[in-house]
Design a protein around this nucleic acid. Structure first.
Length: 164
DNA sequence: GCCAACGTTGGC
DNA sequence: GCCAACGTTGGC
């Protein structure tokens, strides 16, 4: 039986992730109000594959992209394993993908996340870049990847920065 | 608004 | 399978 994280960073064997969202589309404040939400609209295979690797209890850094300023704004927890993203086959959705209605079916998946915390202040991209212990982050090595792994150490460091 | 990075598409 | 054209992401 898989172990699950229960809010403690130190406990368990969960994985750590960073997920980007444009705050004018879906922000940490939106998630806080909703408590829980599907992470829909991902249309990139690498990002999808990362979601398919997630387990319940995995910890997520919520990142605001295309924001002023951009940066990590809080944390969330994976609360449902990857399942079909039906916005891909819904012609009225802004995330509709014609290919997903084709003979090979809908390849797109999403997880659900639940709100954990909103930082008192944004840990900005500029701040992240200046922090030496974060130089190896996937964020700086692979541009445009909207769902990406972070190490436990990176996660912990950024949470500490957000709470300081 | 510009543009670098980079994923996808489609001709061949 | 190659690769040029094109579209999107996302920082600035």
């Amino acid at each position: 039986m898989p172990k699950r994280c229960r809010g403690s960073i130190a406990a368990g064997n969960c994985q750590f992730w960073l997920m980007k969202s444009e705050p004018n589309v879906f922000s940490i404040q939106d998630l806080e109000k909703m408590k829980r939400s599907p992470w829909d609209g991902v249309r990139n295979y690498a990002a999808r594959n990362n979601m398919m690797s997630m387990n319940i209890g995995d910890q997520v850094l919520f990142y605001h992209s295309n924001a002023k300023p951009s940066g990590v704004v809080g944390t969330a927890t994976v609360c449902r394993l990857a399942y079909e993203d039906l916005t891909a086959t819904d012609p009225s959705s802004k995330y509709f993908d014609a290919k997903a209605t084709g003979p090979r079916g809908n390849p797109w998946r999403m997880v659900d996340v639940k709100f954990d915390s909103a930082f008192a202040k944004v840990v900005t991209l500029e701040t992240l870049k200046r922090e030496k212990s974060l130089n190896g982050m996937t964020l700086f090595r692979q541009s445009r990847l909207s769902v990406q792994p972070v190490t436990k150490e990176e996660f912990q460091r950024i949470v500490d920065m957000g709470n300081s």
